[in-house]
């Protein structure tokens, strides 16, 4: 018999290590954000100066507006797309495995690759617009990538392509776990397929929906590689996002203090999403325990 490792060693040691790692670097970043550090970290205290200058900069303001737009649009649309795909796949169709793999496949592609490929597809000079022109529809216009008002939507498109398969997989698992007896009961009561989904099946999916929303939101808030490959914050600074601003301040502009301040602001945004989620789960678990 092989002796098994005690459970606490397997779980607690790695957990403590990563927690210590995460927390110590977070504290270090918070500390740097209050120092006058530029090229290298230095000691000293400048109070909220770094925060004020980040919050006052156009880059951050644009990045924050974009984050709101991108976060909401991306989460809702990828949720809708994922759910639709899951429902369609749920119809016991032929070739379900192949289709499921295809829809899930983009998730296996790195964001840099996704961004680069979409930057070619969406480039009006070489991509979709040119293709349609070549087919003969000369007035067709699809120049979102180089249009500053629409460029943020190209990121939404690419992000949805990448991650709606993930939402689909979770939803599909949820759909499959609905008790067949309930569905049959609904059918006996005379509910059509649409009504069955809307009134019986979908309401059971909402814990999964919340999970998908939280996972997608934290991706949206920390989005970096996709944007960097697709638009690099451009045209101009029209598609800046917080993570790009942090990178830019720290590694392009050598302003460590301000970059750290922007990073802490990002952490606060993330907490604004995660804390309510944690509270919600806590309440739910307590209710379940009482029931």
């Amino acid at each position: 018999m092989v002796r098994r490792l005690p459970e606490f060693l397997v779980i607690w040691v790695p957990l403590l290590l990563s927690a210590a790692h995460l927390i110590s670097f977070s504290i270090w970043t918070i500390w740097i954000s209050f120092t006058p550090s530029t090229l290298v970290p230095v000691t000293g205290w400048v109070g909220l100066r770094n925060y004020n200058s980040v919050l006052a900069s156009r880059n951050w303001q644009i990045a924050f507006d974009n984050l709101l737009l991108f976060g909401i649009a991306f989460v809702l649309l990828s949720l809708a797309t994922g759910l639709l795909l899951a429902i369609l796949l749920d119809q016991r169709i032929r070739g379900e495995n192949v289709l499921r793999t295809i829809f899930l496949y983009p998730l296996a592609v790195s964001f840099v690759v996704t961004g680069t490929v979409w930057s070619w597809l969406l480039n009006p000079g070489i991509g979709i617009e040119k293709l349609v022109h070549d087919l003969g529809w000369m007035t067709f216009k699809f120049d979102w990538l180089v249009n500053r008002d629409m460029a943020i939507w190209t990121i939404v498109i690419a992000a949805i392509w990448q991650s709606s398969g993930f939402a689909m997989a979770l939803f599909l698992a949820g759909l499959r776990s609905v008790d067949a007896d309930i569905i049959r009961a609904a059918q006996i009561d005379g509910a059509g397929p649409f009504r069955t989904y809307w009134r019986v099946i979908l309401p059971t999916l909402w814990p999964i929906t919340v999970t998908v929303i939280v996972v997608q939101l934290q991706f949206a808030i920390s989005a970096f590689d996709l944007v960097r490959a697709l638009t690099n914050g451009g045209p101009g600074i029209a598609t800046q996002l917080p993570a790009l601003v942090v990178y830019d301040l720290m590694f392009q502009r050598s302003q460590l203090g301000r970059g750290a301040a922007a990073a802490v602001l990002m952490l606060l945004i993330l907490l604004a999403v995660l804390l309510p989620y944690g509270a919600w789960r806590y309440v739910r678990q307590r209710r379940a325990a009482h029931a």
Binding site: N123, P124, G125, D143, L145, V146, T231, G234
Partner: peptide, 8 residues
């Protein structure tokens, strides 16, 4: 300049 150049 060609507007399709974008950030190329």
């Amino acid at each position: 300049c060609d507007p399709n150049v974008g950030v190329q």
